[in-house]
Design a binder for these strands. Structure first.
Length: 513
RNA sequence: GGCCCCAUAGCUCAAUUUGGCAGAGCAAGCGACUCUUAAUCGUUAGGUUCCAGGUUCGAGUCCUGGUGGGGUCACCA
């Protein structure tokens, strides 16, 4: 064994493993026989206490050693399992001199242990297992980074735990092992997915799975990751959205489809963007964006109530009320009011850029009008939408998959939902006219002529073919689940809600990504 | 990618105005203690100060480059 890669603390523990084996004790046994979780044991003790005269309850509990307080011939220890923690009360005259010696010399914080004994309360009233027998079930070689725990009013306070963000993300297993609040975030995340599925299943939507490896990517304006299939000798793209595949399914006859899954975008990484992120998209036949808005209000409130038990939440000090109908702001009005620019007076990019510059707002005149409007939304409107708000009726040129507002060729029936100044979702009345769709694609430069361009998007001929078979009118919706979970857990960094966020690889070190 | 900040023991952090013996708490080793709660007490050990150069009699500290992280801007239908 190459001991150079181990720290002195680890070598010390490796020696304990050798000493245990020398005594015929296997520190990594095959099987354990737990009778009670920590939670069940405490419940069993409480039940026993209501029955006078009954024999004490015998239990076998297992878990990770989280604290040890040796007091000579007695040791108090806490073990932690997936359901909580329970105290072990070990007395030398119960377990014997030899076992007591082993516990003191060969067991460390972080080891997994199995303990058999009867349930009791110590003098201070703490539920405990009076240990008759115990054994190592998995030795920890590397010490856990946390120092010590203090329990105050049932809350476990961790002193000087693991806080360095880089180590926490790279070694999430250690982060989870020592930081219960981190475990809690991912429980909330799981509950969010569960609630979303429940919400849509109850309404007759069918959950589907569509390709992640796609020969043609689309449905969003983002740069893709490229990969390659060796045998087919074919480049493939990791999807940037589910949209075009999900809408094909409406052509196939489903009235409501949804997918929860991963999207991949080859773009900048910051506190609200991870290269892979989780989305929910749904498409709803015979609905329009008004119906989607109503369903969104219902959905967000339902999920929040399921997950947090409340229809209000606090995000970075902001009180958010999800119980009322969301504010509705038409984009033109919002820009007029908050940026002081009347979009109807500036129907081309050059005019709008000039108006922005006149107001001292930096504007690149080469950008399309829609992008200029988008930047106005981001700078002037988005931060003000603290309470849930729908911003609706977007410029057509940045929304090639959305249907026009009747009578207005420049505006589409699209909305974005905002909470706490953060964009949460994006939805529209979906364009279902195949000839109009093809025209829009061509307007976006989606043909094979511009392959060198950053904005190059391949034309998806099969999607157009699907639409030509007849696509019912429908409303569609997409929401980043990571950002939604950030809201529900009051986290300001997306990495806090992704178990293994992407980090740059370190020199000479392989990360499991 | 630009700019700003950070990197010291297993963990959390110190180390005086450009510089003068690299320290503490917890964790670890040894010892005491049969109802503890961050148990307590005594004691011992623990360092490539992220990496590579440079300035200086002398660098954790100052300079240059790099690596990684955090923030911010750009990007982001």
């Amino acid at each position: 064994m190459d001991e150079n890669k181990f720290t002195k603390l680890e070598i010390n523990r490796l020696e304990k493993i050798e000493r245990l084996r020398a005594r015929g004790i296997e520190p990594y046994p095959q099987r354990v026989e737990r009778t009670h979780t920590s939670q069940q044991a405490i419940a069993a003790l409480e039940a026993w206490e209501t029955r006078s005269g009954a024999d004490p309850v015998q239990v076998v509990v297992v878990g990770r050693l989280r604290s040890m307080r040796p007091m000579g011939k007695v040791i108090f220890a806490h073990i932690e399992d997936g359901y909580g923690r329970i105290q072990l009360f070990v007395r030398q005259n119960e377990v014997g001199d030899e076992a007591m010696g082993l516990l003191k010399t060969e067991f460390d914080l972080g080891d997994f242990i199995e303990a058999r004994g009867e349930l009791m309360r110590t003098k201070t009233g703490e539920p405990s297992v009076k240990v008759a027998e115990f054994r190592m079930i998995a030795k920890a070689v590397t010490p856990l980074p946390a120092a010590k725990d203090e329990e105050v009013d049932g809350e476990v306070i961790r002193h000087a735990g693991l806080t360095d963000p880089e180590t926490r993300y790279r070694q999430r297993y250690a982060d989870l092992a020592v930081n219960p609040h981190v475990r809690r975030i991912f429980e909330v995340r799981a509950a969010t997915n569960r609630a979303l599925r429940q919400f849509f299943d109850q309404r007759g939507f069918i959950e589907v799975e569509t390709p992640i490896l796609q020969p043609i990517y689309g449905g969003a304006a983002a740069r893709p990751f490229i990969t390659h299939h060796n045998q087919l000798k074919q480049d493939l793209y990791l999807r940037i959205s589910f949209e075009l595949y999900l809408k094909r399914l409406l052509v196939g006859g489903y009235e409501g489809v949804y997918e929860i899954g991963r999207d991949f975008r080859n773009e900048g990484v910051d506190r609200t963007h991870n290269p892979e992120f989780t989305q929910i998209e749904f498409y709803w036949a015979y609905a329009d964006y008004n119906k989607v808005m109503a369903l969104t209000e219902e959905m967000v409130r339902f999920v929040a109530e399921q997950v947090t038990g409340s229809h209000t939440l606090t995000y970075q000090g902001m009180q958010i009320d999800l119980s009322k109908p969301w504010a509705r702001v038409e984009l033109v009005d919002g820009i007029h009011e908050l940026a002081g620019i009347d979009l109807e007076q500036h129907l081309d990019a050059a005019s709008l850029a000039a108006a922005m510059k006149a107001k001292g707002i930096p504007a690149d005149p080469h950008q399309p009008r829609g992008k200029l409007i988008d930047s106005l939304v981001g700078d002037f409107l988005e931060p003000t939408f603290v309470q849930p708000t729908f911003l609706y009726n977007y410029p057509r040129d940045i929304s090639p998959l959305a249907k026009n507002l009747p009578g207005n060729p420049d505006v589409v029936e699209r909305f974005e939902g905002f909470i706490a100044g953060m964009e949460l979702c994006n939805a529209f009345t979906e364009l279902n006219d195949p000839l109009e769709q093809e025209k829009r694609f061509r307007e976006m430069g989606r043909d094979f002529s511009a392959e060198d361009d950053d904005d190059y998007h391949p034309m998806d001929e099969d999607y157009l073919r699907a639409m030509r078979y007849g696509m019912p009118p429908n409303g569609g919706f997409g929401m980043g689940i990571d950002r939604f979970v950030m809201l529900l857990t009051d986290q300001s960094n997306i990495r806090e809600v992704i178990l293994f966020p992407h980090l740059r690889s370190r020199e000479g070190e392989q990360t499991p990504e």
